[in-house]
């Protein structure tokens, strides 16, 4: 039943990840919901096919554990984020709500 699949463009390396929830929280905030909790008893965090990387890199900016999130196609670690994944175009714009 594990949802993490090599078809998702990113995967979580559980040797490095502390299961801190930050990627889950951030992905939920932008309503992509691509980070999920695996149903197995360990309740590890996983990335599913809803992930749109490289179109979105927001989880990489808020992951505190080096090496935790990996580019599936190359095996390249993306935490801390290399320069090419935190360009201005990739940032999610936030505006002050209209009062």
């Amino acid at each position: 039943m594990a949802t993490q699949s090599k078809q998702a463009p990113l995967f979580i390396d559980h040797e490095m990840c502390t299961e801190c929830r930050m990627c889950y929280v951030v992905c939920r905030e932008i309503d992509l919901n691509a980070v999920v909790i695996a149903p197995e008893a360990q309740h590890l965090y996983e990335i599913d096919e809803r992930c749109i990387y490289p179109g979105c890199t927001v989880c990489l900016m808020y992951c505190p554990a080096p090496g935790s999130i990996v580019e599936t196609s190359t095996g390249r670690s993306l935490v801390p984020p290399p320069a090419d994944v935190h360009t201005d175009e990739l940032k999610w714009p936030r505006k002050a709500p209209k009062s």
Binding site: M1, A38, P39, A41, H43
Partner: peptide
């Protein structure tokens, strides 16, 4: 439902 079943089964140990 296999997804629901898996979620509930996964909560048993905790």
């Amino acid at each position: 439902d296999p997804h629901v079943r898996a979620i509930l089964a996964g909560q048993v140990a905790e």
